[in-house]
Design a protein around this nucleic acid. Structure first.
Lengths: 341, 341
DNA sequence: CAACCCGATCGAAGCGGTTCGACGACGAGC
DNA sequence: GCTCGTCGTCGAACCGCTTCGATCGGGTTG
């Protein structure tokens, strides 16, 4: 009862050597089915749970992953949380726990958890084009995977939604319907100024596709508030009266934008087509249901964990290639239609 | 260079015994200033960082806290994230890191991280009145602190906003202004059904205060969507035409509620006073600025960490008393006024 | 039938710290 | 001048688990 049971207690109880117990648990050596069962039974009876520290010390593996979440302003918190959740869930599949690191310790945090062997590997979210964390990650002796794609990904492993393709997909869909002038309502200005990759990439993919399809297209940063939405919409209606479609890549303003257009007498989709880049949950909640490209947070989080575990368990076949880009999926709902003739 | 430096390397480099290095680091024994400086210098030169696992094994302290975040539906994600951030930040002040646990592993997760000595203590968020985690926490051999107050807090340490007082504060403010019929627009129905303490407590505090002040008061659960808001507002206007004030305790619907009343021709605060229970950030963003009671997430998170570290470092003076309730603070802004005569 | 091989298990040496008792030197007290 | 107490440091014994080489009993093989 007193303290926790240790491996020696289990060994004694099962009538085997401690090492045998260890092998039963790890499966690294063959153990006869009979002994195995006996040991398992003892473990259960004694409620044995191996000491994490001792295990980490002896095996040089902590079974913990670090998740670095900067939480910068302008990012959509619920989506970030989705990532975090999916990382935790996926990590458990690989017998790992997740240590949460935030921005306030800065790069020091990375060095600390890696340097003290507190974690086996790191997952880093919200990567900027010129992220100060990159050189540190490269120097670390532990594998890491970035969610987001920096300017120079050399020697780093990245995974993200293919935002350029997402921007293109939105535009192509609208071009296919026959729209000739479209606008992108994007993230808050600070996100572009920070050179966060995803916002710029989506805009670029959108603009390039527009050029390819000979569609007039503009990008408009937008504060993540109802007032910001109203301002941008007013500006849009003023400067581009011939506008027939918008793409919104900024979760918090999706509804305000819709409302502002409605107030201006523009009906969706009859007078105006709208494509959103947002969670499906939001797309189906509003009326009419929004044609949208979802951010597959759950999938990306899971893939990031898989990638990092791959590096950990098979460092020899390091992919070491281009970033992994998840292809966007555009779901057509009721907010897009052909423009009025 | 090769591997990481160990304590023996530092000891050799500084010309002292390993134990001396350890004492320099922990400060548990007096070391002459001269030796201290020499050791510190060696540590810096070699870039020494103690191995977390070894330290945990030897000292029986992992320097890690577990943070259990269920993330149930109906909870406001940004507020939860605020808690998490403040817990991480506060934990670092005490030289601790934070392990993130989610709901999908259930109670098993608690048993695992505690049983393997992965963490020194636990912080548990979003506690329900009859939470299945409570008996497990009581049985654990490690200290824990709950954020939220269960029905039976015996043997547990809780901390939370005093929601009853918050409800009362809202009502008192309105009663002081002269309102005679008020309504509380609350959390989604599932939150009440789950018997999450805070929603019920606020409602109770609100209702009791209303009785005390002879004010007619009703509580209305509300889905966290614009449609939900519209529905509740319509019902309110229909059933209680004499309504002159509402309290909104449901972040996502604050703006939709305001809009719905506006659409119905009720002007704030002239025709209707509004008090919100929400982050200040939201209260000041809308027009007019909302009289509100903030959820001091940052403060509560920090206090939870302080409490748990107290239990860890001085188990002898376990407060073992009633839950710690943070007193609410009502900030008067521009959304409340005297009712029309 | 001896030499071998193989599967199953054991024993002991770490892994890298912390901590406790011991010890030497030195100043104070009588 | 001798004892005693302190201060600063050292040495060694763990902390609990993993892992590698060794061992042992049998079944194969030539």
């Amino acid at each position: 009862m007193s303290g926790l049971a240790k491996i020696d207690d289990v060994a004694r109880h099962a009538g085997v050597a401690p090492s045998t117990v260890s092998y039963v648990l790890s499966g690294k050596r063959a153990i006869s089915e009979e002994t195995r069962q006996r040991v398992l039974k003892s473990i259960q009876v004694l409620g044995y749970q191996p000491h994490a520290g001792a295990r980490a010390l002896a095996s040089n593996r902590s079974n913990v992953l670090a998740l670095f979440v900067p939480l910068r302003t302008g990012m959509h918190v619920p989506v970030i949380m989705q990532f975090a959740i999916s990382v935790v869930t996926a990590a458990r599949q690989f017998e790992h726990d997740v240590l949460l690191l935030t921005a306030d310790e800065g790069v020091k945090g990375l060095e600390r958890v890696a340097g003290t062997s507190l974690v086996d590997a790191l997952i880093v979210m919200d990567v900027e084009l010129h992220d100060p964390r990159l050189p540190v990650l490269r120097a670390l002796k532990r594998p890491s995977v970035l969610i987001g794609v920096p300017d120079d990904a050399e020697g780093l492993h990245c995974i993200d939604l293919d935002f350029a393709a997402a921007g293109a997909a939105c535009l192509d869909h609208l071009a296919d319907l026959g729209h000739r002038r479209v606008a992108l309502i994007g993230s808050p200005p600070e996100v572009y100024e920070r050179e966060t990759g995803f916002a710029t990439r989506l805009s670029t993919g959108f603009t390039d596709a527009a050029a390819r399809r000979s569609v007039a297209a503009t990008t408009h940063p937008c504060e993540a508030t109802p007032v910001g939405a109203k301002t941008v919409v007013a500006q849009l209606l003023d400067e581009h009266p011939d506008l027939t479609a918008v793409v919104v890549h900024n979760e918090p303003v999706v509804e305000p934008v819709l409302r502002s257009f409605a107030e201006a007498g523009r009906e969706v989709p009859a007078d105006l087509s709208v494509v959103a880049v947002c969670p499906d949950e939001l797309a189906v909640r509003v009326t009419p249901g929004l044609t949208s490209v979802a951010i597959p947070a759950e999938e990306i989080g899971r893939m990031a964990v898989q990638a990092v575990m791959g590096l950990l368990n098979h460092p020899e076949n390091d992919p070491n290639g281009a970033p992994t880009l998840v292809q966007p999926q555009l779901t057509v709902r009721d907010s897009t239609a052909k423009p009025r003739p």
